[in-house]
Design a protein around this nucleic acid. Sequence first.
DNA 1: GGTAACATTTGGAGCGCTCCAAACGAGAGT
DNA 2: ACTCTCGTTTGGAGCGCTCCAAATGTTACC
Lengths: 345, 345
Amino acid sequence: MNARPTIYDVAQRAGVSKSLVSLVLRNAPHVAEAKREAVKKAIQELGYRPSQAASALASQSTRSVGLLIDDFRNPWFVELLAGARSVLDPAGYTLTVADLRLEEASGRNPVDGFLAQHVDALVVAAEAPPEMVRDVRVPLVIAGTRSLTPLLGNSLEDGGPADVVAGDDDAGGQLAARHLLERGHRRIAHLSGQGAPAEHRRQGFVRAMAAAGAEPLVYGLDGGTDEADGFRAMRQALEAGERAAGAPPTAVFAANDVMALGAMAALRDAGLRVPEDVSVLGYDDSPLAAYGYIRLSTVDGHSRRLGAEAAQMALDRMAAPAAPARRLLLEPVVVERSSVRVTDA
Amino acid sequence: MNARPTIYDVAQRAGVSKSLVSLVLRNAPHVAEAKREAVKKAIQELGYRPSQAASALASQSTRSVGLLIDDFRNPWFVELLAGARSVLDPAGYTLTVADLRLEEASGRNPVDGFLAQHVDALVVAAEAPPEMVRDVRVPLVIAGTRSLTPLLGNSLEDGGPADVVAGDDDAGGQLAARHLLERGHRRIAHLSGQGAPAEHRRQGFVRAMAAAGAEPLVYGLDGGTDEADGFRAMRQALEAGERAAGAPPTAVFAANDVMALGAMAALRDAGLRVPEDVSVLGYDDSPLAAYGYIRLSTVDGHSRRLGAEAAQMALDRMAAPAAPARRLLLEPVVVERSSVRVTDA
DNA sequence: GGTAACATTTGGAGCGCTCCAAACGAGAGT
DNA sequence: ACTCTCGTTTGGAGCGCTCCAAATGTTACC
């Protein structure tokens, strides 16, 4: 009585066979309108809800894709997720999300979790250790940064091919440097941190600075990439500036928006105004950057489009498992808000 | 060959029966160490991953609980989630999260989704329409605000009992008013919005103001509760102040942290400093409030504890489905940072 | 009136696992 | 030597659904 009704219960109530109920559920064609209605009515009355477990088991498909993100605390993922849903929803696919940081903290392997759940495809938008995504036996798309591309080598060899869509972090780093350079800045500090995306952004930055004959000042290499790390790296930059020339940098490029926010805190604590005294440029164009109170100029890696493309790739690969692997590199652009000013110094 | 291996494959390779493999998987006692090892080895070699669908179907349990949150964009949920995991993980339960806003936008019912997935319990931490959680037939706990309590009536009648753990929003509103009053403020604007939590906070605020003989100035009633709404409501408050006495409020209490951030933007645009010219108090103690660049004083509804208690209630109810429904009201406190100052005006 | 052609509906055989009752072995006790 | 235990292992019967081949209508056409 408290037991969950099954298609048999529905079938009995509607006076049809279980198979017909199944057809109605998947709204198949060639079902008489009257019976369809009768079944729907019975479903209503019984409060029947299909068992995804049974359906997955029988059909070997869940019409769902898993999305692995880095960390729920960094709102970077919000747009990615929205982009992915915008293509998955119309296709009738469901998205399940997991947070790598949280999963690892509890000693679980999120990829195993997804596979146990029978996701039909996997989108990895986090720096997962290569062995985690190896041997996945399900369409895999790497979404995020160019830095994840090396994973490909492995995946291609011992499993299906993996598609990749990434923001070109190296180009983004160069872009950031040039953006600041073009606005008259020369003493530009870069706040970096560990992890592949940060590394690529840094490399691009360093290269572009060198090309312009400016000295790249890099801080925070030993730390992470969250707000506190940004704060700390900014303090280092400030202290280095005092020690050396007595002049702080006139601009700061942070490896992501959250770090930029940390930097802004450190600057304010030091009595420096943004952008009057020092300009700040972030990366990601996360929701944070767009807040009116923050108005952070930032490098936009097109996270929404990234999500959409990744989802599309997953869909395409499910349709054609043997198609050649695709790679798409998205060209970043800078979004100007109010944290960078032109200087004549 | 590309097919996913099953316990039969593992059993064959390890030279045991499928039942033994199943026992090893659930690491049951009374399994000889040698066989256990053999099975584990076979699992390794084959890259076997259990099928959650099959297991759910056979055991009628997934050892997972669903968590419905409001909106991924409001980082309020981050701590809630961490709190919930802190109790679910040790108990061997898995958490799956869905975002009400996103699901509704794509015309889906997230609760149906959870039930189709066979979650063993459901934690609702969003203002879901009552009919959505009716007739759920699975332990249900309402986590969030006192305002969700009315749902209970329904759930109790036509389904299992629902447990509730909530922050006392009404008390929080009063607390906010008193906090500001005690610090010498009299012209206090409240930025509210639609939705039950905001309503309760507002009611508490209005009551406490009245009790102190101060006039409650409420704005933004016609809007929502995100950053832009906070900005708009703050502008209204400022304009009203000019029109009336020529004096802006000396303090602002926003219905949540994101709105407070919007208010801070409006204040800065108006050339007013926080807290020197006007104090700002938020609500939720979200990660936003803690950023060094923001340092927002805020009412802490104990979201982490909320998550933990909710998870515990879910666990308890699964263990004792017939136990009387529990309700827990968490008393909010204010977290002082740097956005409120004492005034003598 | 009979039958081909099509639209609709149905039972049965799994999908990969869990759980149960029963089988099996190996010491222990008599 | 024989029975009892107790620890360990096993086959079988489902869980609720999908998918297929086959059955059953229905309509149309000769």
